[in-house]
Simulated scan of single mutants.
Amino acid sequence: MTTIHRNRTITGMERLLSELTAESGIEFPGFLRMSTSDFEILLQKLAPLITKKDTKFRKAIPAKVRLAISIRYLATGDDFRSLHYLFKISHQLISKIVHEVCASILIVLKDKVMMPSNEEEWLQKETEFHDIFPHCIGSIDGKHVQILSPIHSGTEFYNYKHTFSIVLMALVDKKYRFLYADVGCQGRISDGGVFRNTALFERLERNALKIPAPSVLPGTDFIMPFVFVADNAFPLQTHIMKPYPGDHPEGSIKRKFNTQLSKARIVVENVFGIMSAVFRVLRKPIALQPDRASNVVMSCILLHNFLRNSSSSNNIYIPPGFADTITNGQVVPGTWRNEQQEETALRPFPAVARRSGLLSTQIRDQFAQYFFSQ
């Protein structure tokens, strides 16, 4: 055991957290990305799962410190060897702590990401999008989360950007909350293959999402389905709308449709941007094996919704102006974009050309006519 570890004291680590709490109010959120009250709520939920017993050789590291170590890792993306200088704990033990805490977060916060379970709840999601894109009930997107080359994986996780990755597939609502997330698909699988391997696609295909029946668009006689909006990486389907491919003249019907769809779809781009700006572990290749990297990403997702729904942490997590806004019909970029690095571990899917069914094409054309007439 090195001198730095022998000099570690439990009271010293707890004192650090106490000092941060006693500061003006910005120090603790700056260190752990949440209010002290939400940290305590999270600690109460996790303590039964992450508390360890003392031994005759050394007192166990308290659950409070274990949680602080793990959140700090997610917030900074610092490697375990860097964190060991801050917390005076070996990088091997930090690795174990982070894994155990993230696995426990997946258990205690699992209900923070839930899709609507009935028509009324889906219609509530539609009201949030209604002014921008009537009948829109959510925004879908996928991202490649970069990881280091997994052991003995060959090209299984090797993607089109010539890096190794796992895939995050998400459905979000207008209030920047995840409704569904799937993490861990191998990066080599095509974007269409990734989406088709999700429970969301499977339930959509067999009409098991309890989406409301088609109804009339406001002020028209168009009977239209309720839809998710997506980019060109996704298939055009009855319940999935994506842009018309190519460039279109200013003022054209297709340009108008693409603009409105973009205003609705940009929500999911904001969610990914905000989450990676706060949990910076997502901004660099994650140096963990795919299963543990997936747990890290899913922990960030669950914490995102936990903080987004919190009255004490919401303005810390998404301060005014942090997300994109729409003013006088124009998108005003959020400040999270100023913090984006040129290279990021979150990479979009490539856009690909696809053949679309006649019905889904007609539905898109009718949406386009509606927006053009407004």
Results as ranks from 00 to 15, higher is better:
Asp291Asn: 10
Asp291Glu: 15
Asp291Met: 13
Asp291His: 14
Arg292Ser: 14
Arg292Gly: 04
Arg292Asn: 14
Ala293Arg: 11
Ala293Gly: 11
Ser294Phe: 11
Ser294Leu: 12
Ser294Asp: 08
Asn295Val: 00
Asn295Ala: 14
Asn295Arg: 07
Asn295Met: 12
Asn295Ser: 13
Asn295Pro: 03
Val296Asp: 01
Val296Trp: 09
Val297Tyr: 04
Met298Val: 05
Met298Gly: 09
Met298Tyr: 15
Met298Asn: 14
Ser299Gln: 01
Ser299Arg: 06
Cys300Ser: 02
Cys300Val: 06
Ile301Thr: 11
Ile301Arg: 02
Ile301Phe: 06
Ile301Leu: 03
Leu302Ala: 07
Leu302Cys: 05
Leu303Lys: 00
Leu303Gly: 02
His304Asp: 01
His304Gln: 00
His304Gly: 05
Asn305Ile: 01
Asn305Lys: 01
Asn305Pro: 01
Asn305Asp: 05
Asn305Gly: 04
Phe306Cys: 05
Phe306Ser: 00
Leu307Arg: 06
Leu307Trp: 02
Leu307Thr: 06
Arg308Met: 12
Arg308Ala: 08
Asn309Phe: 04
Asn309Pro: 08
Ser311Trp: 01
Ser311Asn: 13
Ser312Arg: 15
Ser312Lys: 13
Ser312Tyr: 10
Ser312Gly: 01
Ser313Gln: 08
Ser313Cys: 03
Ser313Thr: 12
Ser313Gly: 05
Asn314Pro: 03
Asn314Met: 11
Asn315Lys: 04
Asn315Cys: 10
Asn315Ala: 08
Asn315Thr: 06
Asn315Arg: 11
Asn315Phe: 02
Tyr317Asp: 04
Tyr317Met: 01
Tyr317Gln: 08
Ile318His: 05
Ile318Glu: 00
Pro319Met: 03
Pro319Phe: 10
Pro319Glu: 09
Pro319Trp: 07
Pro320Phe: 04
Pro320Leu: 00
Gly321Asn: 11
Gly321Glu: 12
Gly321Cys: 10
Gly321Leu: 05
Gly321Asp: 04
Gly321Arg: 03
Phe322Gly: 07
Phe322Asn: 09
Ala323Asp: 14
Ala323Ile: 07
Ala323Trp: 03
Ala323Thr: 12
Asp324Met: 01
Asp324Ala: 03
Asp324Val: 08
Asp324Ser: 00
Asp324Ile: 03
Thr325His: 06
Ile326Trp: 11
Ile326Tyr: 13
Ile326Arg: 09
Thr327Val: 15
Thr327Ala: 13
Thr327Trp: 12
Asn328Ile: 10
Asn328Thr: 12
Gly329Met: 11
Gly329Cys: 02
Gln330Glu: 15
Gln330Arg: 15
Gln330Ala: 14
Gln330Ile: 15
Gln330Trp: 07
Val331Glu: 08
Val331Ala: 08
Val331Ser: 03
Val331Gly: 00
Val332Tyr: 05
Pro333Ile: 07
Pro333Tyr: 12
Gly334Pro: 09
Gly334Val: 05
Gly334Tyr: 11
Gly334Leu: 10
Thr335Ala: 15
Thr335Asp: 14
Thr335Lys: 15
Thr335Cys: 14
Thr335Gln: 15
Thr335Val: 10
Trp336Gln: 10
Trp336Leu: 11
Trp336Phe: 13
Arg337Val: 01
Arg337Gly: 01
Arg337Leu: 01
